[in-house]
């Protein structure tokens, strides 16, 4: 690329980055504003002194400690469950030989094309029939299998040289030993990618918890934010203070595990 072309591309990327970051900055600024200053026109990023008291006030207006705990429990359980089911299914699709394997895999993949909304009602009917509405089981159970996770790990497993598997077989290893002692340890990067992305996915999840969690004690952070909006619809600083707090775990995760996010995109072409 020419010098000028490079500069143009860089400018474009910077512009996109700015457009992405600006709402976050505005959110942060609003979270630190006094209630009435937030409505001042024209809007500004820095407006007088920082109102840190917005944070405790917003977070105690509803039991956000409980919401955070719920989100953490649900996300952690789902991550562990998805790692387990995705790895096993992906191994079968990548390495075992059985009739109809590839067709079955295509069947699984086609589920990715079905919008989550379409599945909402059937999922609810099943969970309701099981008596799991307003329980952790209800929040977690239907999230335990991720087609995307199976796809991601299958792609990765296929890149592991077959000779390693052959060597292990000759060394006396059975299928389970190959899976646990050769394939899984070699797949740590892919497993980490899946863990990180599925955690984020759960943390951001809104619709399903909204449908399943009835009582205040079972709410997750995202739904809590929506409820706060209902209660304090005119108090933007409170809402933004809570929203900023909800973003912090994801931000930290991103800082620590940035390369796994990138790898996830590289490996599957899906975010």
């Amino acid at each position: 690329m020419t010098k000028a072309g490079e500069r143009f591309a860089l400018g474009l990327v910077l512009l996109a980055a700015l457009a992405t970051v600006l709402p976050f900055l505005y959110m942060l600024a609003t979270a630190l504003t006094g209630q009435w200053e937030a409505f001042r026109y024209p809007p500004a990023l820095i407006r007088g002194r920082a109102h840190f008291e917005n944070f405790p006030a917003a977070l105690t207006a509803l039991p956000f400690d409980r919401f955070f705990l719920n989100s953490a429990i649900v996300a952690t359980c789902v991550v562990v469950g998805q790692l387990f089911t995705s790895a096993m299914a992906a191994y079968a699709f990548a390495r075992l030989r059985f009739p109809g394997r590839d067709r079955l895999f295509l069947g699984f993949l086609s589920v990715l094309l079905v919008p989550a909304l379409v599945l909402l009602v059937p999922r609810f009917l099943i969970v309701n029939a099981l008596g799991w509405v307003d329980t952790y089981a209800g929040l977690i159970s239907t999230e335990l299998v991720s087609v995307w996770g199976i796809f991601l790990l299958r792609q990765f497993f296929r890149t592991i040289p077959r000779e390693l598997e052959d060597a292990a077989r000759l060394d006396g290893a059975g299928e389970w030993t190959i899976f646990r002692r050769v394939v899984l340890p070699l797949s740590k990067p892919a497993l980490a990618t899946l863990a990180v992305l599925s955690f984020v996915d759960q943390w951001k999840s809104f619709l399903w918890p909204l449908v399943i969690a009835r009582s205040t004690e079972m709410q997750v952070v995202e739904v809590g934010l929506a409820n706060l909006h209902g209660l304090y619809y005119a108090n933007w600083p409170y809402q933004m203070a809570a929203a900023v707090t909800a973003t912090v775990p994801l931000l930290l995760l991103y800082l620590v595990a940035q390369r796994y996010f990138i790898r996830g995109i590289q490996m599957t072409g899906v975010t």
Binding site: D166, A167, G172, L186
Partner: peptide, 18 residues
């Protein structure tokens, strides 16, 4: 293979990298 009691050396070594 496990029950045949033979060992194999591969062209690409096939060592367990981890």
């Amino acid at each position: 293979p496990a029950e045949r009691d033979v060992a194999m050396v591969f062209q690409n070594y096939a060592l367990y990298p981890h």
